[in-house]
Design a protein around this nucleic acid. Structure first.
Lengths: 204, 204
DNA sequence: CAAAAATACGAACGGTCGTACTATTTAGAT
DNA sequence: ATCTAAATAGTACGACCGTTCGTATTTTTG
């Protein structure tokens, strides 16, 4: 049974795929229904009928983006063995995600975070949930790093995830806005320092 | 001679002050001339006459924001003594800047960076210049930290500034989007770890 | 105080925005 | 092949966008 999907669902997926691209460039607010329809050779009203409001579209764009992120970053990392390999895989895939050509406009969530951090409403709430989920995932992975003995037993895993996030944000900024070719090296260096500080004290 | 400023320059300053606020909430693109005029009881065309285009307005908003940042962060930090006090003052004032009530919509430059990182044109170029200036300032301050012996002589000062920036970005995200009350503690902890790693090796 | 220059206003322009309604086309089931 | 329901198109709406222009008002200057 391949055909669970009616035709409408297929075009909706098509729309969302393009919408994720555009939203990463123009932001969730800057993404307009008319423009989105034009780039897909659809009528504005025909496209609009798939969502009942722009707000609903924005929420589905976030979900579609999160799904891609899961497939490109979370899934391949999760199937690495627990401990060091998985921790390093997350960072590696995350870097690749930022560089990914499908992210022509930069990471959708970096853009959306800056855009929505001071707005209220369901779109913001949805973004917060997605971001907290991703944070928690990384906290848990750090915990398995502790269990496997790769990390110190007294490591503050939430602190680890916080600092890891900071490295990625600085990388995003340095690579995408400043276009500094050293950005990736800087990010890796910072990550190695974070790893080292999280490991059991060196036997001297 | 107090009156170098004609009346028009005064209102222009007023406009820019409000515009910086609004832009930090709505972004540089989301900031509209009509709305800006309304909140100031000005006519749209009267306001527009001060700038000849929205693009010019956006550039001046960035400059106005950079000026406020200079006065709230750079200047007080610079007049601290070289070395550790100045380095810590930068971080401290920077944290206060993010919390500052004048930044109701979050840091203008975080918002603008995410918005403009994939656009071309003079507004983006202007933002890049401002951001590079700030980065260079911090690199130079780190260098004086080396000269004063507070930091290791082989410290990579650009790397230091990169990681410092990451901590602030993670703080911004964690405090403003996630509304995590532990954000500030996390940021301080990360900064202490960065400081410690930058200091001369502990005599054991 | 008058002349000149700077500043602000009101109305209007062509566009695009999100959304609502109605029609037309298309697809799937019988 | 026909009927029904889903999917898309068409049209219109009021609101707001950035921008222009002509005019009125205020400020500065001589």
């Amino acid at each position: 049974m391949e055909k669970i999907m009616k035709k409408g669902d297929l075009t909706r997926q098509n729309i969302l795929s393009r919408a994720v691209d555009l939203a990463s460039q123009l932001g969730l607010e800057g993404l307009s229904i008319g423009l989105l329809a034009n780039t897909l050779n659809l009528s504005k009203s025909g496209l609009f009928a798939h969502f009942q409001s722009k707000e609903a579209l924005q929420i589905q764009v976030l979900d579609a983006g999160a799904l891609i992120f899961s497939e490109m970053v979370v899934r391949p990392a999760i199937q690495e063995p627990r401990g060091e390999p998985r921790i390093r895989a997350i960072f590696e895939k995350w870097i690749q995600w930022v560089q990914s050509k499908s992210n022509a406009g930069g990471c959708l969530f970096v853009a959306a975070s800056a855009e929505l951090d001071d707005r209220a409403g369901p779109v913001r709430d949805h973004l917060v949930k997605i971001q907290k989920d991703w944070l928690n995932t990384r906290v848990r992975v750090a915990m398995t790093g502790v269990e496997k003995g790769f990390f110190r037993s007294d490591l503050d895993c939430e602190q680890f995830a916080f600092e890891e996030h900071g490295i990625m944000l600085a990388y995003h900024h340095t690579a995408r806005l400043l276009r500094d070719p050293k950005a990736e090296v800087r990010a890796r260096q910072a990550f190695e320092r974070l790893i080292q500080a999280s490991q059991p004290p060196r036997s001297v």
